[in-house]
Design a protein around this nucleic acid. Structure first.
Length: 114
DNA sequence: GGTGTGACAACAA
DNA sequence: TTTGTTGCCACAC
Protein backbone atom coordinates (compact mmCIF):
# COMPACT_ATOMS: atom_id res chain seq x y z
CA UNK A 1 0.00 0.00 0.00
CA UNK A 2 1.38 3.36 -0.92
CA UNK A 3 -0.44 5.20 1.79
CA UNK A 4 -1.63 3.36 4.90
CA UNK A 5 -4.55 5.71 4.62
CA UNK A 6 -5.83 3.64 1.73
CA UNK A 7 -6.80 0.71 3.93
CA UNK A 8 -8.76 2.90 6.30
CA UNK A 9 -10.49 4.55 3.41
CA UNK A 10 -11.67 1.17 2.19
CA UNK A 11 -12.78 0.21 5.66
CA UNK A 12 -14.71 3.45 5.92
CA UNK A 13 -16.60 2.78 2.70
CA UNK A 14 -17.34 -0.78 3.72
CA UNK A 15 -18.77 0.45 7.01
CA UNK A 16 -21.33 2.48 5.08
CA UNK A 17 -22.97 -0.46 3.32
CA UNK A 18 -26.40 -0.62 4.95
CA UNK A 19 -28.16 -3.64 6.40
CA UNK A 20 -30.12 -5.57 3.83
CA UNK A 21 -27.95 -4.67 0.86
CA UNK A 22 -24.65 -5.75 -0.62
CA UNK A 23 -21.76 -4.20 -2.55
CA UNK A 24 -19.10 -5.66 -4.83
CA UNK A 25 -15.37 -5.50 -4.20
CA UNK A 26 -14.99 -3.28 -7.22
CA UNK A 27 -17.78 -0.96 -6.12
CA UNK A 28 -16.10 -0.44 -2.76
CA UNK A 29 -12.80 0.29 -4.47
CA UNK A 30 -14.45 2.75 -6.84
CA UNK A 31 -16.13 4.63 -3.99
CA UNK A 32 -12.82 4.75 -2.17
CA UNK A 33 -11.32 6.45 -5.20
CA UNK A 34 -9.40 3.36 -6.30
CA UNK A 35 -10.87 2.24 -9.64
CA UNK A 36 -9.63 -1.10 -10.87
CA UNK A 37 -8.47 -2.13 -7.41
CA UNK A 38 -11.11 -4.70 -6.48
CA UNK A 39 -8.46 -7.08 -5.20
CA UNK A 40 -7.31 -4.46 -2.78
CA UNK A 41 -10.77 -4.42 -1.25
CA UNK A 42 -10.44 -8.14 -0.70
CA UNK A 43 -7.10 -7.61 1.02
CA UNK A 44 -8.53 -4.82 3.12
CA UNK A 45 -11.26 -7.12 4.36
CA UNK A 46 -8.83 -9.89 5.16
CA UNK A 47 -6.71 -7.49 7.19
CA UNK A 48 -9.53 -5.64 8.90
CA UNK A 49 -9.37 -5.78 12.69
CA UNK A 50 -12.29 -7.66 14.20
CA UNK A 51 -12.89 -4.72 16.54
CA UNK A 52 -14.02 -2.54 13.69
CA UNK A 53 -17.13 -4.67 13.38
CA UNK A 54 -17.28 -4.15 9.64
CA UNK A 55 -20.17 -5.69 7.69
CA UNK A 56 -17.71 -7.90 5.80
CA UNK A 57 -20.46 -10.30 4.76
CA UNK A 58 -22.15 -7.58 2.69
CA UNK A 59 -19.25 -7.56 0.23
CA UNK A 60 -19.62 -10.05 -2.61
CA UNK A 61 -18.51 -10.51 -6.19
CA UNK A 62 -19.96 -8.33 -8.92
CA UNK A 63 -21.56 -11.50 -10.29
CA UNK A 64 -23.69 -11.80 -7.17
CA UNK A 65 -21.74 -14.78 -5.88
CA UNK A 66 -20.11 -15.12 -2.49
CA UNK A 67 -16.34 -15.16 -2.92
CA UNK A 68 -15.58 -17.98 -0.49
CA UNK A 69 -15.67 -21.51 -1.82
CA UNK A 70 -19.04 -23.18 -1.56
CA UNK A 71 -19.06 -25.52 1.38
CA UNK A 72 -16.44 -23.62 3.34
CA UNK A 73 -17.00 -22.38 6.87
CA UNK A 74 -16.80 -18.77 5.71
CA UNK A 75 -19.26 -19.34 2.91
CA UNK A 76 -21.83 -20.75 5.29
CA UNK A 77 -21.35 -17.92 7.77
CA UNK A 78 -21.63 -15.22 5.12
CA UNK A 79 -24.70 -16.78 3.55
CA UNK A 80 -26.39 -17.09 6.94
CA UNK A 81 -25.58 -13.49 7.88
CA UNK A 82 -27.09 -12.22 4.65
CA UNK A 83 -30.22 -14.33 4.86
CA UNK A 84 -30.58 -13.12 8.43
CA UNK A 85 -31.01 -9.53 7.29
CA UNK A 86 -33.26 -10.29 4.38
CA UNK A 87 -30.86 -10.67 1.48
CA UNK A 88 -32.10 -13.53 -0.66
CA UNK A 89 -29.44 -16.04 -1.68
CA UNK A 90 -30.82 -18.30 -4.41
CA UNK A 91 -28.74 -21.02 -6.00
CA UNK A 92 -25.77 -19.58 -4.13
CA UNK A 93 -26.24 -16.26 -5.84
CA UNK A 94 -27.72 -12.87 -5.04
CA UNK A 95 -29.75 -10.67 -7.37
CA UNK A 96 -27.61 -7.56 -7.65
CA UNK A 97 -30.39 -5.63 -9.34
CA UNK A 98 -32.40 -5.98 -6.19
CA UNK A 99 -29.80 -5.89 -3.43
CA UNK A 100 -26.90 -3.83 -4.68
CA UNK A 101 -26.18 -0.83 -2.50
CA UNK A 102 -27.13 2.46 -4.14
CA UNK A 103 -25.53 5.17 -2.02
CA UNK A 104 -27.39 8.47 -1.97
CA UNK A 105 -25.70 11.64 -3.12
CA UNK A 106 -25.83 12.79 0.50
CA UNK A 107 -23.86 9.74 1.60
CA UNK A 108 -21.28 10.34 -1.06
CA UNK A 109 -20.93 13.99 -0.14
CA UNK A 110 -21.03 13.85 3.62
CA UNK A 111 -19.70 10.42 4.53
CA UNK A 112 -16.94 10.18 1.98
CA UNK A 113 -14.97 13.37 2.32
CA UNK A 114 -13.47 13.96 -1.11
C1' DG B 1 14.30 -8.83 -8.64
C1' DG B 2 11.40 -12.84 -10.73
C1' DT B 3 7.34 -15.68 -10.01
C1' DG B 4 3.09 -17.32 -8.36
C1' DT B 5 -1.07 -16.39 -5.81
C1' DG B 6 -5.18 -14.18 -4.46
C1' DA B 7 -12.48 -12.88 -0.23
C1' DC B 8 -11.78 -9.44 -8.08
C1' DA B 9 -13.59 -7.62 -12.68
C1' DA B 10 -14.40 -6.40 -17.58
C1' DC B 11 -14.73 -8.37 -21.87
C1' DA B 12 -14.59 -11.67 -25.75
C1' DA B 13 -16.16 -15.80 -27.66
C1' DT C 1 -24.15 -18.84 -19.55
C1' DT C 2 -19.70 -20.54 -18.80
C1' DT C 3 -14.86 -20.30 -19.76
C1' DG C 4 -10.59 -18.09 -20.89
C1' DT C 5 -7.81 -13.92 -21.04
C1' DT C 6 -6.09 -9.85 -19.43
C1' DG C 7 -5.56 -6.06 -16.11
C1' DC C 8 -4.66 -5.03 -11.34
C1' DC C 9 -0.93 -5.03 -7.46
C1' DA C 10 0.34 -6.39 -2.46
C1' DC C 11 2.74 -10.18 -0.56
C1' DA C 12 5.13 -14.40 0.31
C1' DC C 13 8.83 -17.14 -1.35
Amino acid sequence: MKHPETLERLWKVISLVPEGSVASYGQIADLAGLPGRARLTARALAKAPQELGLPWYRIIRSSGHIAFPIGSENFAEQRAALLNEGVIVKQNKIDMRQFKWQPTIETLLFELDY
